[in-house]
């Protein structure tokens, strides 16, 4: 535990968040609406975390990350037979590999740029993809498509969980989120992570030390894109449909806001940011018709108050006294 999660705040967060998330559905008395709501927050946190790694740990600011989120869903429809339940695990693997392959090609193009130019080109490519899917008749246009047969989750003949049971699916997504956090922690603590951080801080210096900066960036981009697609795949399975709005720039934008809100680069902050943002969204929506205005003001206030996000604020609070 201490090996992966070095910071005290981080440990505390994990000990608080995951048990709480495990127990929460018990208090909701199996109310499907709330369980589904929680599931979609958890799924989106997986997506935000992959963006948080790219932006906060690699210094690659992208506004096109939602493209991979959407592709995760559309790829499933594209490759899975329509009227046959395929194996969930096999298709998870296919989708991640396919998304990684697409990210490899896109990465070679967009990683020639950096900074503002990278924001522009990732946005442009994601918008191209968005309009392709929203204009194509084959993919259902603006309405998207339904997944007629949900995959079968048995592994070696054993069925671990049922995709149609919201509670099962919620726990599976929560486990995925935890695995993703461990994965990103592993990556950032590895030899690769050391050089990636050096690349982020000072690419010129890192080149002069003999590292091929481009390849480090590319590998990071591919990994983050594959996990974004995984999150999109889970989202598609939750409600059984895909929709071009998954790929819209607003999806990237709100994910970026969540990442900043949580504390960029802290990884666990991505969970904090997503929960707080979605929590605000949900509670304000019921309060007033003009909830977006209120929400905008609150987010501006929070970003001004917590310079390093909520994670940074908590770390300051809990670890300053040492």
């Amino acid at each position: 535990m201490t090996y992966f999660f070095g910071k005290k705040t981080e440990q505390l967060f994990i000990w608080l968040f995951f048990p709480l998330a495990l127990l929460l559905p018990l208090f909701l008395e199996q109310n499907e609406f709330y369980v589904n709501k929680l599931t979609s927050v958890v799924i989106f946190a997986i997506f935000v975390m992959s963006l948080d790694y790219l932006v906060g740990r690699c210094g690659m600011i992208t506004l096109g990350h939602s493209m991979f989120y959407g592709l995760g869903g559309y790829l499933f429809i594209l490759i899975a037979p329509e009227f046959e339940a395929v194996n969930f695990w096999v298709y998870t693997f296919y989708i991640c590999v396919l998304a990684a392959a697409i990210a490899l090609v896109v990465g070679v193009i967009v990683l020639r740029t950096s900074g503002v130019y990278m924001i522009m080109i990732t946005l442009a490519i994601a918008q191209m993809c968005f309009y392709f899917f929203s204009d194509s008749v084959e993919f259902g246009g603006n309405d998207g498509l339904f997944i007629l047969m949900k995959p079968d989750t048995s592994l070696f003949g054993l069925a671990f969980f049922n995709l149609d049971d919201p509670l099962h699916f919620y726990y599976f997504c929560l486990l995925s989120l935890f695995n993703c956090l461990v994965f990103w922690k592993l990556v950032t603590g590895s030899r690769f992570g050391r050089i990636m951080e050096a690349v982020k801080d000072n690419p010129q210096r890192t080149t002069a030390l003999g590292y091929n900066v481009f390849l480090f960036r590319l590998l990071s981009y591919v990994m983050a894109s594959a996990l974004a697609a995984y999150a999109g795949y889970l989202f598609a399975l939750q409600y059984g449909f895909v929709n071009p709005s998954m790929m819209s720039w607003q999806t990237s934008g709100s994910a970026l806001v969540m990442s900043i809100l949580g504390g960029m680069g802290s990884l666990y902050g991505a969970i904090l940011g997503t929960v707080v943002y979605e929590g605000l969204h949900y509670s304000l929506e019921h309060l007033t018709e003009h909830w977006l205005l209120l929400m905008g003001c609150l987010i501006i206030a929070m970003v001004m108050l917590f310079k390093a996000g909520i994670a940074g604020f908590l770390e300051n609070l809990l670890e300053r006294r040492k």
Binding site: G189, S190, F192, R194, I195, F216
Partner: peptide, 13 residues
């Protein structure tokens, strides 16, 4: 760079 493994994402630094 001299010890290698710079692309190993699972090997602790």
């Amino acid at each position: 760079r001299r010890v290698g493994g710079s692309f190993n994402i699972l090997l602790s630094k």
